[in-house]
Design a protein around this nucleic acid. Sequence first.
DNA 1: ATACCGGCTGACCGATCAATCAGTCTGGAA
DNA 2: TTCCAGACTGATTGATCGGTCAGCCGGTAT
Lengths: 199, 199
Amino acid sequence: MLRAEQNSCAEQIREQAKKLFAARGFDAVSISDIADAAECSKSNIFHHFGSKEALYFDVMRQVMQRSTDRIRQVMADDIDAPARLAQTVKDHYAMISEDPERSRLMMREVMFSSPQRGRELAGQVFGEQFKTLTELMRSMGDEADGRAEFTAFMLIAANVMHFHCHNVLQHLPGAEFADDLDGYAHMVTNILLLNLGKN
Amino acid sequence: MLRAEQNSCAEQIREQAKKLFAARGFDAVSISDIADAAECSKSNIFHHFGSKEALYFDVMRQVMQRSTDRIRQVMADDIDAPARLAQTVKDHYAMISEDPERSRLMMREVMFSSPQRGRELAGQVFGEQFKTLTELMRSMGDEADGRAEFTAFMLIAANVMHFHCHNVLQHLPGAEFADDLDGYAHMVTNILLLNLGKN
DNA sequence: ATACCGGCTGACCGATCAATCAGTCTGGAA
DNA sequence: TTCCAGACTGATTGATCGGTCAGCCGGTAT
């Protein structure tokens, strides 16, 4: 086909591979699936990426890079105190939900990959995100050791679980916050503020 | 081999299948893998379970059943107020960590299964757990609408993320609570109590 | 003895997997 | 005009997949 024009084939392959890997995981996606989705031949995928694993790692590397970029961007705002936390809760959630494939891929890696890959992920992606969130928490007045880190963890845990478990959450009786994003964000902000000693 | 003695072959198959499915997911595990682990023939697996999917559902059914049993057992204790919440945080965490394969399987289902399976899971397994936790929260004084449910969600989110993301958490700077379970449980209890209006 | 039944097996099936390879086509450098 | 590098493809590979099938074996009922 030769599409040096507009959307290069390699990029198309990456994009479709990302969607498929996120939706079904590495093993459930075949090279044929990706070739069909990207409208190119199987062989071309091997031409560009060498192997299925190499393609997967390429996709993951790109996903991680975009994720850290997005984090830097979100954290750049500079309003103050409680309003800033409220905004951060929403921004962090938006970061997760604006690219579901990215965050699904990352959750797959975090929860189901080997311990050594966990270490890599911690350094490359989550380290920066966690550090920035921790600094935000600490800037809000609490200096007890570990409190800021724990509060940052609670923010991430809540948002990640809320987004990725929505299929189940929305069917639990009384859990209206599953579909009420504003109400949910408000409750999260509130509980984090309480934990930081503000109210 | 014929092992009607002690440990029936079907049970051995179930056990090994559970371990493998939890570690690698449905697609990454082959019938041959399970047959090798269970020390029986491939054919025997089809003899007992009919298909790979049927085996998977059988394993999941058993996992879910044991999970609800465990929840009932944990919730049976009847001490009061803050001590009860502290105990519940620890019990819930223990429930997760005492059978990592079970909770990994359940998280796989929750995060990566179809919406309709999400509904089933909500009804069959998590519904009861969530309801009981919600009642505990409500019994501790807060009757604002949705507050109890949200607090129960936060407990689950924190414990699940803490356990399943340990590989990453333990490498984050300042996150000592990753390996300090008592300290972690204390901080969770504290933040939940604050949110319920106690202190 | 004979018949039967369920647990269990090895040989085998078609389909699909990741990967290879020989070769076509095209745009630009020499 | 020649030549070459790189994008791309169709045919094909050996391995492995989920699943089938005929039949063996040991216990039980007749």
